[in-house]
Simulated scan of single mutants.
Amino acid sequence: MHGIIFLELKKYVGAKWGAPAWSTLLADAGLGSRSYLPVHEYPDDEAELLIGTVAKTTGQTFPTLLEDFGEFIVPDLLQVYRSLIHANWRTLDLIENTERMIHRIVRLRNPGARPPQLVTERRNPSQVAIHYRSTRRMCGIAKGMARGVAKHYGERVAIHEPQCMHTGAPECVIELRLAN
């Protein structure tokens, strides 16, 4: 997993439970004083271990925590990738173009990066479906990011997931509809 996700997780943990919580989390997860750099790749199982440890420690479910984390990271990611985001885009436009404009560049800049594959289907002006494919199966982050992007644009989205890898499907289908 890309180092920026670990740095965002550290920021998330600090914002929710205070700066010392990160060191405690690393210790509880058995990772000692591990540090992460933004442009390196790290084992997926470390991210899963850290997120699972946060969930266990806080009593949240893994999916709920993923969604909250996904929403939390949006402002920073929008800042990092602002040059790739068209000024006239709104929530569904950005989501519809994430694979083409952002994930493609991430893969070009860092050949080891493996962001999820997103195939989008614009069903009408107020609805888009995301076909989410990733061996990580962290579709909760995508749902949280959709909420975070909508929040950024002053919009709201209703999210429906008729198909999920966690229930045996080969991919997740996440349907987003503007709720404003």
Results as ranks from 00 to 15, higher is better:
104 R>Y: 11
70 G>L: 09
9 L>A: 04
154 G>F: 05
108 L>H: 07
107 R>P: 02
17 W>M: 12
115 P>A: 00
64 T>V: 01
176 L>Q: 07
72 F>G: 08
115 P>C: 00
133 R>M: 13
174 I>P: 08
45 D>A: 12
74 V>T: 10
93 D>T: 09
60 Q>W: 06
169 A>G: 04
19 A>G: 07
40 H>G: 05
51 I>M: 11
75 P>H: 06
37 L>H: 14
2 H>M: 11
89 W>E: 06
5 I>H: 12
39 V>L: 14
65 L>Y: 02
48 E>Q: 13
128 V>D: 12
60 Q>D: 09
90 R>V: 09
170 P>T: 03
72 F>S: 11
99 E>V: 10
3 G>Q: 10
131 H>F: 15
131 H>I: 15
71 E>I: 04
36 Y>M: 06
28 D>P: 01
30 G>C: 04
26 L>P: 10
170 P>A: 10
73 I>F: 03
1 M>E: 04
164 C>V: 09
176 L>C: 13
11 K>D: 14
117 Q>D: 03
60 Q>L: 12
126 S>Y: 06
42 Y>L: 08
29 A>T: 09
60 Q>Y: 07
164 C>M: 08
9 L>I: 12
143 K>L: 02
84 L>E: 11
163 Q>N: 10
89 W>A: 03
157 V>R: 07
33 S>N: 09
102 I>F: 12
52 G>R: 01
57 T>S: 13
60 Q>V: 01
88 N>D: 13
80 V>T: 15
20 P>H: 14
167 T>D: 09
94 L>Y: 14
94 L>P: 11
39 V>S: 13
123 R>N: 03
91 T>L: 05
55 A>M: 01
140 G>M: 01
